[in-house]
Design a binder for these strands. Structure first.
Lengths: 145, 145
DNA sequence: CTCACGCCTTACGTAAAAGTCAATTCGCTG
DNA sequence: CAGCGAATTGACTTTTACGTAAGGCGTGAG
């Protein structure tokens, strides 16, 4: 195994990643990454036909997967990552972005409330289980608190 | 239109809801609710073949939709809502539930981190837009802070 | 009685997000 | 140069989560 991008050698930051390196890092398949490219989420550079991913591509992929974990659709993620790019020069477009930022923020805050609620229910369920175990006189395995 | 369940009449809590009442309340289709029943997420009672939803069913549906908003699959939601039911009497099963509670909690905490990160990126994007607008000398429409 | 209305089941259709498989094509290595 | 491993494209398949259409039951109003 050797590094891609002739190993820039003055230290810390990799210049490029191969597709399989990223699949291993993020636990996804090459198909998934290529699919995201087809969908216009990510645009790796090419050496010949082989894809080379820059650190910024890697970061972008991280963002994409965050969106996925939160249940956003590809189309929504595309819209979201587009907002992270250099702001355009036209006032109307800027205002449009600001509006969408506000919308996404509202969605995320809803999701956050959902998480808090669900965590609360999990606490209740755990309590009920522990109570039941106490009733049964069963010793628990390794409790934190 | 009149109330189902001969209107228990001593006040606040509806006895039953029809399927279309719930679709209107939650903004989903009858197909969706029936699908959830097929998938074993919810078990309304029947009068003849017509489904009648108790307040607890309504609450359950609320939980299901929370799970959906957070990107959980039907199969995961089924597992989750099963944890909310009366704890079983067998110690092994209780321990299994406790384990799954811990797993789900970890997932939710991951999602919460994802949300915080994404909100941070949205803040950055908004800042960039506002800066750009200032550069362009454009007046903004209605800012909160 | 008939008709509309609301709910029911059954069955087929579909969009999204990949999985899987086949046929190639580089680039190196022995 | 033959071959092997890693990457590519393209096509087909699968799973999930419903949408949608077709036809039937029950009941309250006219």
């Amino acid at each position: 195994m050797h590094a891609v991008g002739h190993d820039c050698s003055r230290g810390t930051m990799r210049e490029h990643y191969t597709i399989t390196e990223l699949t291993r890092e993020f636990g996804i398949s090459t198909r998934t990454i290529r699919f995201y490219e087809d969908e216009g989420l990510i645009h790796p550079i090419r050496r010949g036909r082989t894809r080379l991913f820059r650190p910024s591509d890697r970061q972008l992929l991280r963002n994409i997967l965050r969106g996925k974990r939160l249940g956003f659709a590809i189309s929504e993620i595309r819209e979201i990552v587009q907002m992270y790019r250099e702001p355009p020069g036209e006032a109307g477009q800027l205002r449009a972005i600001l509006r969408r930022v506000a919308e996404r923020r509202a969605e995320l805050e809803q999701k956050r409330r959902d998480i808090e609620d669900m965590l609360g229910e999990l606490d209740a369920a755990e309590e009920a289980c522990l109570t039941r175990m106490a009733e049964l006189g069963v010793g628990q395995t390794s409790r934190s608190g």
